[in-house]
Design a protein around this nucleic acid. Structure first.
Lengths: 337, 337
DNA sequence: CTGAAAGCGCTTACAG
DNA sequence: CTGAAAGCGCTTACAG
């Protein structure tokens, strides 16, 4: 069976008009009402729909947004992906997905493939990228926005929460709760989010003349974080642990309550970062700093589409405030319920 | 700044060959070694990469696979999505994502949009589709495979686990464990997976002269399932509950252990379906029937690409066996540890 | 092996 | 408003 999609030519023939006329009614250009009706009737009978790829060849707009994702096991990302897709779909764009097989590394190679598909813009979630690559995209005039990751040097747009302020906030909260032996299982220190949260956290402790009693890089991996929790407990006996994201915090809670048989928060408080849906589930009931995924997605799409429509716009660095969500995994400050 | 991608024409000029020659070396057609070298050198200097969209216009192959997804909050799907993307990417295809905003409903509209993008094939995960639509895809000669969903009437490919056998297996397991008041919070009964698991479960109970003491449709939603658990406990006092998927089972466990203060499995056993990563986490430690996501993905890609490359192939219905994974949420049969 | 030419399915000036 | 024509960036017979 041959692949036989209907073309505008065939519609034109059936409607008794020129192919250009058909194109005009489907691209919203001017056409008389009678022409439009005949074209639409013919198209409906034939089941015609314009070939988006052919259109994009001439318009230079594919209406495809390339999305690089990793860490899909961290609920924050599927959630963001779904939101991004919905918002973009509503605005007539679609997402072409690129996953990173080996964690870091070849974001660059993947972006080259995106360019092959003539994407109108790129969203890189939880991914950094080489400066050379950023330059290449700039040269090709493809707007990029980093989602939940920052990069100082390159002139890229980025949308993050205020991770430094968040880390600081958590330090203040733990201190106010009377914790004095505070440990940290950090987010991956090769990522801006990991570094910023840690930096803010340190600053918050330092402001009260304190410092962490132990610190290990959890690298955003559940298993590494769980091991880190065991080790930190054995060596430092903390009364609180700030974990660099919720995904790791769940592993930490499991390790603390399971193998170690500890009571959270009586023996030790645990605070995460993100406020993914699971953080509210009774099994974890995790105190955490919310990254407002919905608002981050809206900002991402807004700035990306704005730059697609107007390439002269400068890159933006957008920082969204998040709230501390107090649940049961951390002792609360006195005088507060 | 104008969008200025390099074209094969420019490479040809720089290399001192014809545009066809450039095309040949990049499409793998025959070319002399000297020509190939000059072309590659010129391309490298200019940063040329072929325009995939232009290529697909003439070859009739976009190397884009449309993927419809929903239920991304159920970890089974992001996991499958990541696997699908990796496997397809390795074979030179990429995924264009389409999310369903309102649960059921307009899978059809979304598929029309996919056709506009000239996708080479479609994977519909956790989605059914109207027969009319299936016919339309057949007419356009676009292979479709339903992932984790079946549809009897239409001549579509599908990849599922053996849900009937799975439901039956779980019934046998619970019976062998000495349970006698068995309840069921079913997977969505408008979906083939939900229906099949329930059917197998009923059959398994019936084979031992038993039937469920209570049953509510959880519709694959955590909150509905949690409410159902409360209601079933109040009205029927079951000693075991089979929940139609893991995602709901987590909510059921939270409801049983939290508000109801029950001990699982001493007061009541709980069994899920899927074996998502979280099922192995200590907080849930869920006994469940594994759907082998990796094998399902491989089968999906294999059958889809086979039909893309050879359109005469008939649709396949592939059923993959899953194992029962015994963990701590359900009492085990006597004489077994 | 190689170049000139036709053509994939559209959009968009250009005349009329 | 409308049609004929050029052209988007490629691939692929067709001659040579």
């Amino acid at each position: 069976m041959a692949r036989t999609r209907i073309t505008s030519q065939q519609v034109a023939q059936r409607a008794g008009v020129s192919q250009s006329a058909v194109s005009r009614v489907f691209s919203g250009a001017s056409a008389s009402e009678t022409t439009a009706q005949r074209v639409r009737a013919a198209a409906a009978e034939l089941g015609y729909r314009p070939n988006v790829l052919a259109r994009s060849l001439i318009t230079g707009r594919s209406r495809i947004i390339g999305l690089v994702v990793a860490y899909l096991e961290n609920q924050f990302y599927p959630d963001a992906l779904e939101r991004l897709s919905n918002v973009l779909q509503a605005r007539g764009y679609h997402i072409l997905i690129f996953t990173l097989s080996d964690r870091d590394g070849d974001a660059d190679k993947v972006i080259e493939e995106m360019l092959d598909y003539q994407v109108d813009g790129i969203i890189a979630a939880s991914v950094s990228m080489s400066d050379g690559l950023a330059v290449q995209c700039a040269a090709a005039d493809i707007p990029i926005v980093l989602f939940n990751r920052g990069q100082d040097d390159a002139g890229l747009s980025e949308v993050t929460s205020d991770n430094v302020a968040g880390g600081q906030r958590i330090a203040g909260f733990l201190l106010a709760g009377g914790h004095r032996r505070i440990a940290h299982i950090s987010g991956w220190q090769e990522s801006s989010t990991g570094r910023d949260r840690t930096r803010g956290f340190h600053a918050g402790l330092a402001a009260a003349g304190q410092r962490v009693v132990a610190e290990i890089d959890g690298k955003y991996r559940r298993d590494i974080a769980a091991d880190a929790a065991m080790q930190i407990w054995r060596t430092a006996r903390p009364d609180a642990i700030f974990v660099g994201n919720d995904h790791m915090a769940f592993g930490v809670l499991d390790a603390l309550r399971g193998p170690l048989g500890l009571n959270v928060p009586d023996d030790v408080s645990v605070v995460g970062y993100d406020d993914v849906a699971m953080a509210a589930w009774p099994a974890y009931d995790l105190t955490t700093l919310r990254q407002p995924s919905g608002r981050m997605v809206e900002a991402t799409v807004a700035t990306l589409l704005a730059r697609i429509e107007n390439p002269d716009l400068a890159p933006e660095k957008i920082r969204i405030e998040g709230a501390l969500i107090q649940r049961g995994s951390a002792r609360k400050p006195k005088g507060q319920q």
